[in-house]
Amino acid sequence: MTEVTEKLIPKDFVTDQEVRWCPGCGDYSILKQVQTILPDLGRPREQFVFVSGIGCSSRFPYYMETFGMHSIHGRATAVATGLKSTRPDLSVWIVTGDGDSLSIGGNHFIHLLRRNPDVNILLFNNQIYGLTKGQYSPTSEQGKVTKSTPHGSIDYPFNPIALSLGADATFVARTMDRDPKHQQYVIKRGYEHKGTSMIEIYQNCNVFNDGAFETFTEKSSKKNETLMMEHGKPLVFGDTSNKGIKLDGFKPVVVDLNDTSVNDLWIHDETDLLKATILGRFYDDPAKENHFPRPFGVFFINSDKTPFEVLMSEQSEAAKEKGLGDLNKLIAGRETWVVN
């Protein structure tokens, strides 16, 4: 990494292209937050690469004054793997949506996570297909009535957090478009993690799925319906921070802090996979009685797994320990003969 000589500002990351998302789209906020934090990461602009697939979110690279590739549907993860494997010096970002990463690109998504190259995934989850004008997505709730499901979707949705933990992701987090500060915090932490950072961002599609996350984002319900996880802190939520999560064996329970001490609550530990797995399963329909709040923040970090490109480079370097290969020797092989 070369030193940044002049201090960059968010405007340095804005392109001359007109942003063409629908007015009111949650994508604007994500673009803004990314452009806001990049100058603080201490890297020169030319080292950033944004790779995307297809979908509304995947237009993102066109609006970032960095290197970028708008690839094909579902494959940004694979493109990024090849790029990072050969250019470990770059900061590689994948911008994808719920359809792009979990439907057509589902296979590459899980394999990226298991290989763990040091790249960052921004998964814009709006629970709908926007670019194709409103079909249900792999994260849409069952029963959803869309253009392609007039009688309601019969598919059960994917839970991206549980899926990622199942694929052995080393950084798993969730944030939302309507909370810029939280978004910036989570994305920055994802950037700092050495390994693949999977950041799910709840993003409102105000045209085809308006209000999908309003329970979590609206002031009136946010405190009661969300669980803002912080490492080393008890899991507290509620209008007046009056509720908490306690572990009864492996069973999480919601408790009232009027009759349970904060000291008895579950203390969030980002390095605990088992607990992250339980939190990842807090995926209830908020309309359901006795549901758990939806967690936001960092579920899990594993810093022990060496990134893919590091392992690949190590093998390359080990092979070159006795010097670079001799092409003449390679071509000649073991047995030759002379014809006079």
Partner: peptide, 22 residues
């Protein structure tokens, strides 16, 4: 590998070519 060669056995054919494009 001692010739600056990196090989990547991808999860499928599509990932193979896309990684190469990257």
């Amino acid at each position: 590998k001692n010739f600056n060669v990196k090989t990547f056995q991808a999860e499928d054919e599509i990932a193979g070519i896309c990684a190469s494009i990257g």
